[in-house]
Each structure stands twice: as C-alpha cells, then as structure tokens.
C-alpha cells in the first residue's frame, strides 16, 4: 500500500489542490447540516451557538410541505430540471456533431466561440438584456408589435410565455459549454474507424449513427448522472433575476431556491434555510444513486461507480 502510494506520489500530488478545495468547501461545511435540526439561537461564536441551540427534530423541514406553494415549487424544480437535462444533452450533441463535420475549420472555430460567449455572462447582465427586449413600455419586442399595429404584451405578468422563455435562455447560455465537452470527445475518437467505414461505403449519416454516437455513450451517461444529482437545485439567477422577481410569474418561476431565498431574506431563520438545503442535497443523492443503479444494469462501463 505504502509503496504503491510512493510510486504514484507525483500523480496523487496533482489531485491535492482539488482535494483541499473539497475538504474546505464541501466536507467541512457538512457540519452545518446540524443546523437544520436545531432552533438556532445566538450565544457567542458560531460553534458555541451551534452547540447550545436546542434540538428540534424535523420541525425546520415542515414549512416546505406546509402549503400548496410547496407543491408548485417542487413541481417546477423537478420539471424544469428534467427538461433542461434532456435539452442540454441533445441540443449540444447535435450541434457539436455538426460543427465537427464542418470542412471549414476556421468557420467552425468562429461558430464555437460565438456560441460559447453567453456562458460567461452573469444572469444579472442577461436579465437586463432580456429587459431591453421585453420591458412593457420601452422593450424592443413591444415596440415592434405596436409598430405593426398589434397590442403590446406585458411580458412580466403573463406567465404562459415563461416556461418557453426560461428554457430558451438556459439553453442559449449553457450551449457553448456543453458543445466544448462533446467536441473534445469527438476529436478523441480514433480516425481509423471513420476511414474503415468510408472504405466500406458508409454514408456520413451511417458514420455518425454507428461510430460517433456509440463512442460518446459513456460521456453522455456521466454528464447525465452529474446533472441528475442537482435535480432538486435550480439555477437561482435564471429563476430570480431573469423574471425580475415578478410576483405574477411565481407559479412558473418559483423553485426551491427562490422560495427559500424569498422567505428567509425577510425572516432570516438560518435553521429553516439549512433544512431546505439539506433536503436538496439528500434528494439529489437519492436521484444519483437510483440513476446510477439503472445505468449500471444497462451498461456497466458507463456507470459512475
């Protein structure tokens, strides 16, 4: 064991920064889960307060199931995430294959960079872009509608448009990042497969179907598993900043994260907000375990563990 460790010391050392990061930011904070089961009162420093606070069992979790709103936020979180997971696998995969088949390599680079750009914008910035288009009186879209003789739409109070809008923004922002991952994998596929296939007279479509896609299967499975672990979390910026915290849109924009934020920004109960975060993690863990189990049954190689 020791000799093996010694032999691999160099490689292990490379993992060290990541390891330290995980210990500091993922493992140490786990202590905080305790807060979810306590009635947090302040007496001295953080640890002192933590130790002296009363245990309350699952009381802090109750608020999440207290009302109809809870059902709506759970539904929204899960449905949006499922949709996003599927779209964020299929669309980038499709475009990545298209880009990889482009003969004009300079063009391919240009498209890729353009698609990647929105990924680096924060949701706050994007929310202002969106505002420029959708604002009720000065927005581009409404001005266009009015100029064409139609009535303007009050975008921020009509909830029926937002499931589409949110899906569109999310895809638009994350597309570039996912494409890069798939492109890297496609480049890594052994070229000899394609040569052999074209010698045998396989068409481009047949090559994609029988070489590219099967080669990418493991990668898709891994990305899927990673995404499904976050199925109970939502992209806060997307659901809070982009709809500008508009109350009329809550039925379609309320997710677990925004509910927790809205509630405790005012009430400030750290116990209840910790409970929400703990629940998200636990649901995520369960989803990951189940999904991994299913994938392992189908294809052992592609499973995470």
């Amino acid at each position: 064991m020791w000799t093996r460790f010694k032999k691999n010391f160099g490689l292990t050392a490379i993992a060290l920064p990541g390891l330290i990061w995980f210990i500091l930011f993922s493992y140490l904070p786990l202590i905080g889960i305790v807060i979810a089961f306590k009635d947090y009162k302040i007496s001295g420093g953080f640890f002192e307060s933590l130790l002296s606070s009363k245990w309350v069992g699952f009381d802090n979790f109750k608020f999440m199931f207290a009302t109809n709103d809870a059902r709506i936020m759970v539904r929204n979180t899960l449905l949006y995430n499922m949709l996003f997971i599927v779209i964020n696998i299929v669309v980038p995969l499709f475009i990545a294959i298209m880009i990889s088949e482009l003969l004009n390599k300079r063009g391919a680079k240009a498209y890729q960079t353009m698609i990647f750009f929105p990924y680096f914008l924060s949701w706050v910035v994007i929310s202002y872009f969106v505002w420029a288009f959708l604002s009720p009186d000065k927005g581009l879209v409404n001005r266009l509608l009015v100029a064409m003789g139609a009535d303007g739409i009050s975008w921020y109070s009509e909830k029926k448009y937002w499931p589409f809008l949110l899906t569109f923004f999310n895809t638009w922002k994350n597309l570039g990042y996912n494409i890069v991952i798939y492109l890297a994998a496609i480049v890594g596929i052994d070229k000899t497969y394609y040569e052999a296939a074209s010698l045998d007279g396989a068409s481009k479509w047949q090559q994609i179907k029988h070489i590219t896609l099967p080669q990418l299967r493991s990668l898709v499975a891994v990305l899927f598993l990673l995404a499904i672990g976050k199925v109970f979390n939502s992209d806060f910026g997307l659901f809070y900043q982009v709809p500008r915290n508009s109350g009329a849109l809550f039925p379609v924009t309320q997710t677990v994260d925004t509910y927790v934020y809205r509630t405790f920004r005012v009430i400030g109960d750290i116990g209840m907000s910790s409970a929400a975060a703990a629940l998200q993690s636990i649901v995520g863990l369960v989803f990951i375990l189940v999904a991994n189990y299913i994938i392992r049954k189908i294809d052992r190689e592609s499973a995470l563990f």
Binding site: L28, P29, G32, N233, S234, G237, V256, D257, A276, A277
Partner: peptide, 17 residues
C-alpha cells in the same frame, strides 16, 4: 446555486470563526 451559496457561506463562517 442556492446550495453552493449556502455551503460557501458556511465555509466562510468557519474560517471567520
């Protein structure tokens, strides 16, 4: 995002304390 934020915060709290 929310979970990350909370865990980051907790880590920061730890360091601070």
């Amino acid at each position: 995002m929310g979970k990350k934020l909370i865990s980051l915060l907790l880590a920061a709290l730890l360091c601070v304390s």
